[in-house]
């Protein structure tokens, strides 16, 4: 039995168009689970269902053996970090963090202070405790929001696109911080994002969503090496898609009506057999070159190291080994 489970969740505004349709998701204890997908795929809606801010028209949500489906938001006790951080502008950082403890009728001021300072130390915002949210930078606000969500010792930490408002450098730094804190506290975390790289770098498992459904849920490694469909394959960097017949010409054996795909760097150039092609475009990627190769089966995108550089117009042979090709059953 898993730690948490969404079962057959349906969400709809008008009972006709489903935003989420029969969504199933398992949550394991202590993991960082990401919901990944393009905007409008329903990942934020799924998170809001878990938070309790969005009502469902069907399905159940069970956490730690308890049915949470109809528990109101304020009794769920989950830590939530909003995309806009949603800090209370009229309260100091200290009072923002203490808010959840005070709402829990915690009267012991020393205990509140102690917990707030411990959380501030963990998120590295101790120097800013007496400032107001407007006096903080984006990254600092993010840390305050994280501290405020964590201080109530939630069973689940829910992060809605927490890094999307930060600049590129800060984003990488913050995702490491989030991962470090998550591991230190061992807290089960659900992370919503549309950024594949960001998602794969921190997640234990990734649920890829499309049109209100989860299309693949697995470890980042498994998804990277064995995407379940063409959309996911494109998402994780596969650029060449071809039929089983072409695959045979490239040196493969599998027949039938399957779709095969491979990454640009997985081809072998000028082996004994393969498909003949002409190089038409060459771009330099730093330590490797990317070629557009024109063959009788259309264009292939191929990346090769600097060891042997080919020129535009060169005739080459393209082949691929079987373990480098992913077969998608479509």
């Amino acid at each position: 039995m898993s730690f948490g489970e969404l079962k057959g969740i349906c969400v709809s505004y008008d009972n006709k168009n489903m935003i989420l349709e029969n969504l199933d998701l398992e949550i394991h204890k202590g993991e960082l689970l990401s919901l990944l997908g393009p905007s409008g795929c329903g990942k934020t809606t799924t998170l809001r269902v878990i938070e309790g801010l969005m009502g469902t028209v069907g399905g159940t949500f069970i956490l730690d053996g308890k049915d949470m489906t109809h528990v109101p938001v304020h009794d769920r006790g989950f830590g939530v970090v909003f995309q806009s951080y949603a800090l209370f502008p009229h309260l100091s950082v200290r009072d923002n963090i203490a808010f959840g403890l005070k709402m829990r009728k915690e009267k012991n001021k020393e205990l509140i202070n102690e917990k707030v300072e411990k959380m501030a130390a963990l998120t590295e915002i101790t120097p800013y405790l007496d400032r107001f949210p407007k006096q903080l930078s984006g990254g600092q606000r993010q840390r305050v929001a994280l501290a405020r969500a964590l201080v109530i010792e939630p069973k689940l930490l829910l992060l809605d696109e927490p890094l999307s408002n930060l600049d590129a450098q800060l984003r990488i730094q913050m995702r490491t911080t989030i991962k470090r804190i998550q591991q230190e506290l061992g807290i089960t975390t659900i992370f919503v994002t549309h950024d594949q790289e960001e998602c794969f770098s921190v997640s234990d498992r990734v649920a890829i969503m499309d049109k209100g459904k989860i299309v693949q849920c697995d470890t980042p490694e498994a998804i990277y090496h064995k995407p379940a469909n063409e959309m996911i394959a494109r998402f994780v960097g596969f650029k060449n898609f071809y039929s089983a017949d072409v695959y045979k010409d490239l040196g493969g054996t599998n027949g039938g009506s399957t779709l095969c795909c491979s990454r640009p760097s997985d081809f072998t150039i000028n082996a004994a057999n393969g498909i003949d092609g002409t190089i038409e475009v060459r771009t330099y990627l730093g330590s490797s070159y990317q070629y557009e190769v024109n063959t009788k089966h259309g264009f292939f995108t191929v990346v090769a190291t600097e060891e042997k550089v080919y020129n535009i117009g060169d005739e080459i042979k393209l082949s691929i080994s079987e373990d480098k090709t992913v077969i998608i059953g479509e």
């Binding site: 938070e51 309790g52 801010l53 109101p72 938001v73 304020h74 009794d75 769920r76 006790g77 989950f78 830590g79 939530v80 909003f82 995309q83 806009s84 949603a86 800090l87 209370f88 502008p89 808010f99 959840g100 709402m103 829990r104 405020r148 969500a149 109530i152």
Partner: peptide, 16 residues
């Protein structure tokens, strides 16, 4: 007003 500050308060244990 940022709508999510009200939601944030609710997730922290506040009734609507």
């Amino acid at each position: 007003c940022d709508v999510s500050i009200e939601e944030a308060a609710r997730t922290l244990g506040c009734k609507p």
